[in-house]
Design a binder for these strands. Structure first.
Lengths: 168, 168
DNA sequence: GCATGAAATTTCATACTTGAAATTATTTTC
DNA sequence: GAAAATAATTTCAAGTATGAAATTTCATGC
């Protein structure tokens, strides 16, 4: 940090070499993430005949036994409203999800897992945890802690300041 | 590393607390990656009226001036064959990409950027580098190096051993 | 020289995803 | 209490993505 030319957070043009390094680490992070996601996707398909988006929706509903409104669901998952509509439709058709009208508001719908849905998700979640552990379990606790710390720094960076979270 | 119960890479059941920690760090990494990706996607849409998949395809073609075969392109981007067909169709319609039959093999097609495509991509790539630098430039060189190291460890983990890369 | 299998793409059915427009219901304001 | 703004969803058009099946072409064995 003693050489000002090495500091790419200052105003003005950042050093080109550091810009390239940023790009390099981002592409690496993206690649690793996509690889892991593809692995999970494939395992969900082969072992449980389901998809990642369905799994994500079920995960969100699993945490809220009382159910969620469609809008709560789409903002929890950070996906568009129309998207959730389609996924829920298919989950309802499969008997994993139930739609309940909200008392006192004829616009809103409460969506929640059926018993079948809860059971199915519990099984998948247990398997999912093990898959992830096969990948991240190889990190030392220290490396894991550092990774978390770095990810926090990234999430709070200049370039990502649109709507901070409030999440459990 | 002195307490064997803390070592989750050993055979047998890993400690539940460490499994949860793996899940936690993965979800955090996924969230950060998606957040960055969404930011890039939005900027590409607003500033250049294009999409991330198109940008990715153009990036791959930019690196290979001589062009790529459809199959080379889809394996370079790690997406399905049918997917690339559709994206290339639209890029061709927009005059950014050219299709050339391969001499001596009537099955294959060589795909490459037009002048217009190259110019457009060069402009977008320069902007893209700056966006990424706004996010990752805040990391110290040391943190960046550690992140790269951790990502390498992840990519070489047990859970991800299907087809190692050969990539520049 | 033809049958067979492998290779390169496209086509297809299905599902996911987005942003925007449309719909319906609630709330606010005057 | 009608009009206007808000809110919750769905619908829509377009694009992305997948895995599988179909097509066309190439390479060989025989």
């Amino acid at each position: 940090m003693s050489d000002p030319d090495q500091c790419s957070t200052a105003l003005g043009n950042p050093a080109p070499a550091l810009v390239k390094q940023s790009l390099r680490v981002w592409l690496k992070m993206l690649k690793a993430t996509k690889h892991i996601e593809a692995t999970v996707r494939e395992k969900l398909r082969v072992e449980f005949d389901t998809t990642l988006p369905r799994f994500d929706v079920m995960a969100a509903l699993y945490r809220f036994e009382e159910g969620l409104k469609m809008s709560e669901l789409s903002s929890a998952l950070r996906v568009s409203n129309g998207n959730v509509t389609g996924i829920i439709e298919r989950l309802v058709a499969d008997g994993a999800v139930l739609r309940v009208p909200v008392a006192g508001d004829k616009r809103a719908m409460l969506v929640r897992l059926t018993h079948k849905g809860r059971d199915e998700f519990a099984t998948m979640a247990a398997a999912h945890e093990l898959w992830i552990n096969e990948i991240f379990g190889g990190l030392t606790p220290d490396a894991t802690a550092r990774l978390i710390c770095i990810l926090d720094t990234i999430e709070h960076s200049q370039g990502l300041n649109s709507g901070e979270d409030h999440d459990a």
